[in-house]
Every structure is written in structure tokens, then in C-alpha cells.
Amino acid sequence: MAAKYEEVLKIEKLYFDYSDTSVLKDVNLTLYQGDFLGIIGSNGAGKSTLIKLILGKLPYYKGSISLFGTDIKKSFPRDKIGYVAQKANSFNTSFPATVKEVVMANLYSKKGLFKRYNKQDEERFYEVIRRVGMEGCENRLIGRLSGGQQQRVFIARALISEPKLLLMDEPTVGVDMQSVTEIMNLISELNRQGITIVMTNHDTPALVEVSSKLLIFCSHGNGEFVDRANLTMEQINQIYAGKRRHNHE
């Protein structure tokens, strides 16, 4: 990637253990504005752990994680980060909240304590709702929407704070097949609009197809950071199976 693009995420020599179990070993990667990183690997390989580490939820690790040029241990740029979790983990479906209430809540990262919403915030809300294709649903209870619609709302919630980096942990889990395709298309469109994406997904081929970079957690436990454009699907499968190593940088 050309140097004119802003460095968004840099991970160097990252190691992380859960109790005595080594989860991440020597993970290294650098992402620039507009990159789409797909993280692939088997269950328990450390995909979600890496997302949590980037979000600063797990403070004890070795190595360094920098966002927008600053180590996250020094400062966390929450106004530049959006996060979309698995739908099922996100909320209680009987909670009496409208789409508008849920999406507007995330303006907190921009506004801070005690600030009220203003006209610009309302305009921003309608813009992101249009962007995710949920016009007309503003005042509906979120628990009454379909799984795919609910996930679009959560993407809108992440977008309202105008993130430069969007982290997505299995965003299509619990969503019907038709909606999976629509959500993947939406995420690709957001990436084309300049948002850097880091995403895990259980559907590996679909994720590989939309990614520009891949972090492959292979059978020997290390994460291999590769440029998607330089590899065939067969080569990716070989790295995944631990039969081939690839040094990206």
C-alpha cells in the first residue's frame, strides 16, 4: 500500500495467553486506510481475542497495538473506532428501544457526558439509516425486526460516530442467507467508501472474497498476515492447513 494512505492499525510481536494457554503468538500486521482485513481460522484460534485486544478490552498482553499511530495503552481513539458484534450477543430482544434510540446512543463517543442531541445529530442519524437501507424503520422497536435488519441497525449504530476503522466480529451469525449477502455487500460498500475494515466470519470463502488482506490463524498457532491479491484460494488453504508459510512484509 502506498505511503500516502494513513496508517490505521499496526500490531507488532503480539503475544496473548489465557491462563496457561497461549492464544496468540507473534502476530504482526499493518493496515492502512481503505484496507479490508479478513481474519480466518478455526474456532478458538484467537480471532475474537484479537478483536478484543484491538478494542482495548484485554489489557494484559505482550507486544504493541497502535491505532492511528498511537499505542492504545497511551490513548484509545474511541471516536475513530466502530464495533459490530455478533447480533445474538448484542442485546435483549424484549428491550423496549426503537431503532433511533439505539443508533443515536452511540453518538456518545462524539459528544461525551451531559450533551444533548442537536439538529446535526438528527441529520446524521437519517443519513446513516439511509446508508444501511433502513429508512422507514426509525421508530420501530428493534426487537421486532428480523435478524438481518437488526444487524443493519447495529452497523448504523457503529457508523453514526463516523469511524475510520470498523471492527466486526462474526457480524452475519444468526442472520438469514438473503440478509448475509446484503450485509456483506453493505460492508464491502463501506470499505469502498474509505472505511478500513477488520472482520472475522465463520463463512471463510465469503470473507476471503471481499478482503484485501488476510490474517490466517493456521494449525501451528501463528497468525500469517498475507496480501490477498498475491494468493490463490489453494495457496490460502495451504497456509490455513499449516503446509505453507508466507511472509508478507
Partner: peptide
């Protein structure tokens, strides 16, 4: 706003800086 966000999704609220 803080009470709503924490009641709805405590993790997301924390990430937003609440």
C-alpha cells in the same frame, strides 16, 4: 443517555466512552 446505553448494551456503552 448514559442510563439508556448501559441498560441496553453495557459493552458498547463502555466502548463509546460512557
Amino acid at each position: 443517555r448514559e442510563l439508556f446505553y448501559i441498560a441496553f448494551d453495557e459493552d458498547a456503552a463502555e466502548l463509546a466512552g460512557v
